[in-house]
Protein backbone atom coordinates (compact mmCIF):
# COMPACT_ATOMS: atom_id res chain seq x y z
CA UNK A 1 0.00 0.00 0.00
CA UNK A 2 1.23 3.44 -0.76
CA UNK A 3 0.71 4.62 2.77
CA UNK A 4 2.90 1.91 4.21
CA UNK A 5 5.69 2.74 1.83
CA UNK A 6 5.44 6.34 2.76
CA UNK A 7 5.47 5.59 6.45
CA UNK A 8 8.50 3.40 6.08
CA UNK A 9 10.28 6.11 4.23
CA UNK A 10 9.39 8.62 6.88
CA UNK A 11 10.57 6.32 9.62
CA UNK A 12 13.73 5.99 7.60
CA UNK A 13 14.06 9.74 7.60
CA UNK A 14 13.72 9.76 11.35
CA UNK A 15 16.43 7.19 11.60
CA UNK A 16 18.67 9.33 9.41
CA UNK A 17 17.94 12.33 11.57
CA UNK A 18 18.88 10.36 14.66
CA UNK A 19 22.00 9.03 13.08
CA UNK A 20 23.00 12.52 12.08
CA UNK A 21 22.39 13.71 15.61
CA UNK A 22 24.52 10.91 16.98
CA UNK A 23 27.30 11.68 14.57
CA UNK A 24 27.28 15.28 15.58
CA UNK A 25 27.09 14.42 19.24
CA UNK A 26 30.04 12.15 18.77
CA UNK A 27 32.15 15.20 18.08
CA UNK A 28 32.44 15.33 21.86
CA UNK A 29 34.43 12.15 22.09
CA UNK A 30 37.56 12.93 20.17
CA UNK A 31 39.05 15.30 17.65
CA UNK A 32 36.64 14.73 14.83
CA UNK A 33 37.06 11.00 15.03
CA UNK A 34 38.44 10.63 11.54
CA UNK A 35 41.48 8.51 12.14
CA UNK A 36 44.47 9.39 9.98
CA UNK A 37 44.35 7.57 6.71
CA UNK A 38 46.38 4.42 6.75
CA UNK A 39 49.45 5.09 4.72
CA UNK A 40 51.13 1.76 5.07
CA UNK A 41 50.46 -1.06 2.72
CA UNK A 42 50.92 -4.63 3.60
CA UNK A 43 52.51 -6.85 1.09
CA UNK A 44 50.67 -10.13 1.35
CA UNK A 45 53.79 -12.13 2.09
CA UNK A 46 55.62 -9.56 4.23
CA UNK A 47 55.72 -9.70 8.01
CA UNK A 48 56.10 -5.89 8.06
CA UNK A 49 53.33 -3.34 8.40
CA UNK A 50 55.46 -0.59 6.88
CA UNK A 51 55.65 -0.13 3.13
CA UNK A 52 57.98 -2.71 1.68
CA UNK A 53 60.33 -1.17 -0.85
CA UNK A 54 60.78 -2.75 -4.20
CA UNK A 55 63.82 -0.54 -4.84
CA UNK A 56 66.37 -1.18 -2.11
CA UNK A 57 68.40 2.00 -1.77
CA UNK A 58 72.03 1.77 -0.71
CA UNK A 59 72.84 3.40 2.58
CA UNK A 60 74.23 6.79 1.53
CA UNK A 61 77.94 7.48 1.75
CA UNK A 62 77.75 10.30 4.29
CA UNK A 63 80.35 11.74 6.64
CA UNK A 64 79.12 14.32 9.13
CA UNK A 65 79.58 15.31 12.78
CA UNK A 66 77.75 13.53 15.57
CA UNK A 67 76.33 15.10 18.72
CA UNK A 68 79.59 14.72 20.62
CA UNK A 69 81.32 16.74 17.92
CA UNK A 70 83.14 13.72 16.50
CA UNK A 71 83.27 12.76 12.82
CA UNK A 72 80.70 10.13 11.95
CA UNK A 73 80.74 7.90 8.88
CA UNK A 74 77.23 6.61 8.35
CA UNK A 75 78.14 3.57 6.25
CA UNK A 76 81.07 2.53 8.40
CA UNK A 77 79.53 3.12 11.79
CA UNK A 78 76.15 1.55 11.11
CA UNK A 79 77.59 -1.29 9.07
CA UNK A 80 75.72 -4.56 9.66
CA UNK A 81 73.24 -2.92 12.03
CA UNK A 82 69.57 -2.21 11.56
CA UNK A 83 69.28 1.53 10.92
CA UNK A 84 66.31 3.89 10.84
CA UNK A 85 67.10 7.10 8.97
CA UNK A 86 65.17 10.37 9.03
CA UNK A 87 66.07 13.81 7.67
CA UNK A 88 64.69 16.75 9.64
CA UNK A 89 65.41 19.82 11.75
CA UNK A 90 64.87 20.71 15.37
CA UNK A 91 62.94 23.95 14.89
CA UNK A 92 60.24 21.94 13.18
CA UNK A 93 57.26 21.91 15.54
CA UNK A 94 55.00 19.29 14.02
CA UNK A 95 56.23 16.47 11.80
CA UNK A 96 59.81 16.04 13.10
CA UNK A 97 59.11 15.68 16.83
CA UNK A 98 56.00 13.62 16.13
CA UNK A 99 57.93 11.18 13.94
CA UNK A 100 60.97 10.92 16.20
CA UNK A 101 58.80 10.82 19.33
CA UNK A 102 56.75 7.91 18.00
CA UNK A 103 59.92 6.01 17.08
CA UNK A 104 61.19 6.74 20.61
CA UNK A 105 58.08 5.23 22.19
CA UNK A 106 58.35 2.14 19.97
CA UNK A 107 62.07 1.80 20.76
CA UNK A 108 61.31 1.83 24.48
CA UNK A 109 58.89 -1.04 23.94
CA UNK A 110 61.73 -3.19 22.59
CA UNK A 111 63.64 -5.60 24.78
CA UNK A 112 67.01 -4.12 25.81
CA UNK A 113 68.66 -6.75 23.65
CA UNK A 114 66.71 -5.80 20.52
CA UNK A 115 67.06 -2.13 21.26
CA UNK A 116 70.83 -2.41 21.11
CA UNK A 117 70.56 -3.78 17.61
CA UNK A 118 68.79 -0.72 16.21
CA UNK A 119 70.40 2.58 15.27
CA UNK A 120 68.08 5.55 14.97
CA UNK A 121 69.79 8.25 12.94
CA UNK A 122 68.48 11.82 12.59
CA UNK A 123 70.27 13.89 9.95
CA UNK A 124 69.81 17.66 10.25
CA UNK A 125 68.56 19.60 7.24
CA UNK A 126 69.28 22.85 9.08
CA UNK A 127 72.92 22.47 10.15
CA UNK A 128 73.39 26.17 10.81
CA UNK A 129 70.97 26.09 13.73
CA UNK A 130 71.30 22.42 14.59
CA UNK A 131 74.68 22.37 16.28
CA UNK A 132 75.75 19.07 17.89
CA UNK A 133 74.63 20.43 21.26
CA UNK A 134 71.21 21.57 20.03
CA UNK A 135 70.70 18.21 18.34
CA UNK A 136 71.64 16.32 21.48
CA UNK A 137 69.24 18.23 23.72
CA UNK A 138 66.42 17.79 21.21
CA UNK A 139 67.05 14.08 20.60
CA UNK A 140 67.37 13.30 24.30
CA UNK A 141 63.63 13.89 24.64
CA UNK A 142 62.98 10.97 22.29
CA UNK A 143 65.91 8.67 22.88
CA UNK A 144 69.20 9.29 24.60
CA UNK A 145 70.85 6.76 22.30
CA UNK A 146 69.52 8.33 19.09
CA UNK A 147 72.29 9.39 16.74
CA UNK A 148 72.19 13.00 15.52
CA UNK A 149 74.27 14.11 12.57
CA UNK A 150 74.96 17.61 11.36
CA UNK A 151 77.42 19.28 9.01
CA UNK A 152 77.68 20.27 5.36
CA UNK A 153 74.17 20.75 3.97
CA UNK A 154 75.36 20.02 0.42
CA UNK A 155 76.42 16.54 1.54
CA UNK A 156 73.10 16.05 3.31
CA UNK A 157 71.17 17.05 0.19
CA UNK A 158 73.17 14.66 -1.98
CA UNK A 159 72.69 11.81 0.45
CA UNK A 160 68.96 12.51 0.71
CA UNK A 161 68.59 12.72 -3.06
CA UNK A 162 70.12 9.28 -3.45
CA UNK A 163 67.19 8.00 -1.37
CA UNK A 164 64.56 9.93 -3.30
CA UNK A 165 64.26 12.60 -0.59
CA UNK A 166 64.38 16.23 -1.72
CA UNK A 167 65.91 18.63 0.78
CA UNK A 168 65.94 22.37 0.10
CA UNK A 169 67.96 25.16 1.66
CA UNK A 170 66.35 26.63 4.80
CA UNK A 171 64.18 29.67 4.14
CA UNK A 172 64.35 32.64 6.52
CA UNK A 173 60.85 34.05 6.98
CA UNK A 174 59.93 37.72 7.41
CA UNK A 175 59.58 37.24 11.17
CA UNK A 176 63.05 35.77 11.46
CA UNK A 177 61.93 32.18 11.84
CA UNK A 178 63.45 29.56 9.60
CA UNK A 179 61.53 26.95 7.70
CA UNK A 180 63.51 24.01 6.44
CA UNK A 181 62.52 20.79 4.73
CA UNK A 182 62.24 17.38 6.27
CA UNK A 183 61.92 13.96 4.74
CA UNK A 184 58.39 12.71 4.24
CA UNK A 185 59.55 9.25 5.22
CA UNK A 186 61.68 7.17 7.55
CA UNK A 187 63.78 4.51 5.85
CA UNK A 188 64.70 1.24 7.52
CA UNK A 189 67.95 -0.45 6.47
CA UNK A 190 68.36 -4.12 7.26
CA UNK A 191 71.59 -5.54 8.71
CA UNK A 192 71.79 -8.32 6.14
CA UNK A 193 72.77 -6.09 3.19
CA UNK A 194 72.71 -2.55 4.68
CA UNK A 195 70.04 -1.58 2.16
CA UNK A 196 66.66 0.09 2.66
CA UNK A 197 63.82 -2.41 2.71
CA UNK A 198 60.94 -0.78 4.55
CA UNK A 199 59.59 2.77 4.40
CA UNK A 200 57.41 4.63 6.89
CA UNK A 201 55.68 7.77 5.68
CA UNK A 202 55.38 10.55 8.24
CA UNK A 203 51.99 10.11 9.83
CA UNK A 204 52.69 6.42 10.38
CA UNK A 205 51.14 5.36 13.66
CA UNK A 206 53.35 4.57 16.61
CA UNK A 207 51.81 1.09 16.72
CA UNK A 208 53.20 0.34 13.28
CA UNK A 209 56.73 1.08 14.49
CA UNK A 210 56.06 -0.96 17.59
CA UNK A 211 54.99 -3.89 15.44
CA UNK A 212 57.90 -3.67 13.01
CA UNK A 213 60.84 -2.76 15.24
CA UNK A 214 61.35 -6.24 16.75
CA UNK A 215 61.38 -7.65 13.20
CA UNK A 216 63.83 -5.00 12.03
CA UNK A 217 66.04 -5.59 15.05
CA UNK A 218 66.21 -9.27 14.23
CA UNK A 219 66.88 -8.51 10.58
CA UNK A 220 63.81 -10.40 9.37
CA UNK A 221 63.63 -10.20 5.57
CA UNK A 222 60.95 -7.90 4.21
Amino acid sequence: MPRTTRTTRLAGAAAVALAAALTLTACGSSGGGSAPTKVTRQKADSPYQGTVLTKNFEKPDLQLTDTSGQPYDLRQQTNGKTTLLFFGYTSCPDVCPTTMGDIGVAMKALSPEDRQKVNVVFVSTDPQRDTPKVLRTWLDSMGSDFIGLTGDLAKVKTAARSLGIMIEDPVVNADGTVTSTHGAQVLAFLPSDDKAHVLYLSGTEEKTYEHDLPLLAKGVAA
Binding site: T90, S91, T98, M100, S141
Partner: peptide
Amino acid sequence: PLPPAGGM
Protein backbone atom coordinates in the same frame (compact mmCIF):
# COMPACT_ATOMS: atom_id res chain seq x y z
CA PRO B 1 53.06 18.37 23.19
CA LEU B 2 55.98 19.06 25.51
CA PRO B 3 58.51 20.61 23.11
CA PRO B 4 61.64 18.43 22.82
CA ALA B 5 64.15 21.17 23.52
CA GLY B 6 61.91 23.46 25.51
CA GLY B 7 61.67 25.94 22.68
CA MET B 8 59.45 25.78 19.66
